[in-house]
Design a protein around this nucleic acid. Sequence first.
DNA 1: GTCTATACCGTGATAGAC
DNA 2: GTCTATCACGGTATAGAC
Lengths: 212, 212
Amino acid sequence: MSPKIEKKDKILDAAEALFAYHGYDGVTMRKIASEAGVDLALAGYHFGKKMDVFEAVFQRRAGELNRTRLEALQKVQAEAGKSGPTIEKIIEAFLLPLEIAQESPDPGWKNYLALIAYVNNSAVWGEKLMSSTFDALVLEFLAAIKKAMPDADEEKIYWCYHNLSGALTLTLAQTGRIDRLSNNKCHSSDFQTAYGIMIPFVAAGFKEACKG
Amino acid sequence: MSPKIEKKDKILDAAEALFAYHGYDGVTMRKIASEAGVDLALAGYHFGKKMDVFEAVFQRRAGELNRTRLEALQKVQAEAGKSGPTIEKIIEAFLLPLEIAQESPDPGWKNYLALIAYVNNSAVWGEKLMSSTFDALVLEFLAAIKKAMPDADEEKIYWCYHNLSGALTLTLAQTGRIDRLSNNKCHSSDFQTAYGIMIPFVAAGFKEACKG
DNA sequence: GTCTATACCGTGATAGAC
DNA sequence: GTCTATCACGGTATAGAC
């Protein structure tokens, strides 16, 4: 019983890493195959066209991610009881499953979340993949936020979520820019610090910007 | 004297729009030339290789953008006098020049800022272009923020800027996701609302997250 | 059913002739 | 400035090995 990884999974792993870093058009089927150590035609055999490989990569971890985040939301809701959780707790439930994934021993998660950053910032891909895969979950979180801020204007809540989504996305993208900007005092790879600051930052932003 | 636009500029305009939407690898020299209505070889004649076209597009408006934003910062500093401007005013000076550019009659600005979103979210391009072109200006703003929050931890200020940068980037990217998420109550193209909410959101975030 | 070798044919960047 | 040739690369299909 060897710890054999299916070639099919190796293809997805390689494609995940490459797409995350180079984007769809910056990757070739040949690079994916060679990185995965398999024959060029095998990706086509398993998945079909290049676009199908991309979608297979995108969908592979989406279900688990949605489930984990929903559970985190339900947990803080159960703990809070009838009055419902605070904004801080809701934001935390939204973000911490990502931190856990990024720090998991499977490095594929880090690549996957960087891929999400790529998709979320792209007008081309956003519609096709991002909204259909994640918006149902996001609406659950927004419903919780509305309950925690009953006087807030709905439109403002969407825009505040947009700000959260952007801050998160840049974190997922792992660009290294903060390293250079801060003269190496901060590091893109330091997720713990990133989320530790993002949570109070975003919670305060929601509270202030949704006033009135 | 016709209002003749140089072919050279037409090439940059076409490349700007295409790169912003499709990314570097999603664009071909042929598409740029055909969109610009010029011969394929002309782009090479003027700019050299494809990569050089990309950099020419990126640099074309960078100087003006940096100048406008610096002037906006200096203006609020002059108005505030010795005590220095508030966080809100500094963030406003950082963002409003972008809103003005996006709403300018030259549609190229909107494309250019979407291109910046593409570059800023990419680990590949970030280092090569983003930091070298814009970090000097960003450090001016961060110095002003440090002065407005003398007790804040420096590292936290960088991370707060990271959050601002992400929220801004997603706005520049014009993905249309907020339209779908909000069931068309909000629109990616509604910059006025976007910045109107982003400014108090981010200012409150800085104040809260930099405490202690 | 899984995988490999290879061929096809279009497309693309670039250089050099004009 | 423009036209065209070159030559590499890329997506995909197919034939057949294990």
